[in-house]
C-alpha cells in the first residue's frame, strides 16, 4: 500500500502532500505522523499542501486531528501553502480550522516553527500572527 513520505529535518518533520488522497491514505498519514513524532521526539511538524487542489471535510478533519495530536505530544504543527480557492471553499464549507497555525509557504512555515522552538515549550496562542 502506498504511503505519503515523511521527511525528518532536525527537530522537525516535513510532509508534502502531492496526490489526491483517498481516505485510507489520509488516515495512514495521520498514524505515521503521530508515531514518528513520538519516536524522534520532534518539536515541529510542517505540512505543505500547496499542490492540493481540494480539501474536503475529511481531509480538514485529518489536519485538525494531526495538529491536536502533535500538540499533546508537545510538537507544533504548521500548515503551509493552501491555495486561495481551497481556502475560500473550506470557509464556505464551515471549516475554519481554528487550532492550526498557517504560513504562506514552506520557508515562512519553517521560520514560524523555529521561532516556536526557540521560545520554549510553553504553549501560546498568537493566532498565526508572529511579532
Amino acid at each position: 500500500m502506498d504511503r505519503i513520505p515523511i521527511l525528518k529535518v532536525g527537530d522537525c518533520l516535513l510532509v508534502t502532500i502531492q496526490v489526491d488522497m483517498h481516505d485510507e491514505l489520509a488516515m495512514s498519514l495521520q498514524e505515521d505522523l503521530t508515531s514518528q513524532i513520538a519516536r524522534y521526539g520532534s518539536r515541529g511538524v510542517l505540512i505543505d499542501i500547496s499542490s492540493l487542489e481540494i480539501v474536503d471535510s475529511f481531509i480538514g478533519r485529518m489536519l485538525a486531528n494531526i495538529a491536536a495530536m502533535s500538540r499533546v505530544l508537545d510538537a507544533q504543527t504548521v500548515l503551509t501553502g493552501m491555495q486561495p480557492a481551497v481556502a475560500i471553499t473550506l470557509v464556505e464549507l464551515g471549516m475554519a480550522l481554528p487550532g492550526i497555525k498557517t504560513a504562506l509557504n514552506v520557508e515562512r512555515g519553517m521560520q514560524l516553527l523555529q521561532e516556536y522552538m526557540d521560545e520554549g515549550p510553553e504553549p501560546e496562542e498568537t493566532d498565526g500572527s508572529e511579532a
Binding site: T80, I88, A96
Partner: peptide, 11 residues
C-alpha cells in the same frame, strides 16, 4: 469569511 480564508493561507 475573506479574513478567515486569508488566515488559512497564512496571511
Amino acid at each position: 469569511k475573506t479574513i478567515t480564508a486569508a488566515r488559512l493561507m497564512g496571511a
